[in-house]
Amino acid sequence: MENKVRQFLASRFADAILREDNFRGQQAFHIRPELLLAICEALLGDPDLEVRYLSDITSVDWLGHEKEMGGRFEVVYNLYSLKHRYRFFLKVFLPADNPTIASLTPLWNGANWMEREVWDMMGITFAGHPDLTKILTPDDLEGHPLRRDFPLTYEVPHFSWNKDQPPEVIR
């Protein structure tokens, strides 16, 4: 099955695969962001592969490692073929300023909330998403908490030397 996916992608989207890595049997393809929707549509529609299940969408912030990774934000698509019981990953890298990727909601309705979560926590815009609004964080929170440059602490802790001062909120 591992070879099937590779051959399928190589035959139809030869220039889309930037690199491929395999970690303990988990296969991941790094692909060009602009071809994501076309690749997913082909995987979904192929009668042999039948990659019908979008398990999850997550993201990684590679702040400080943009050069070697090829972009600051990584979006990971966790796909599963029910027919072959085979799971693999598609990964795209997006630039630090205005990271945008096509939404997968035209293919999977389940992508709706997953993309909202990634947008809410990491600030990646999904073009074509029907309702890209907050899903997890409080309404008054500004920013995207999972980004590495989001402040780690909320306010200065109180010790004996600053117990009389009002708490300083860092956020």
Binding site: T137, P138, P145, F150, P151, L152, Y154, E155, P157, P167
Partner: peptide, 8 residues
């Protein structure tokens, strides 16, 4: 949990 999500 001194972070944005938890009331101090």
């Amino acid at each position: 949990f001194n972070n944005y999500a938890i009331l101090q």
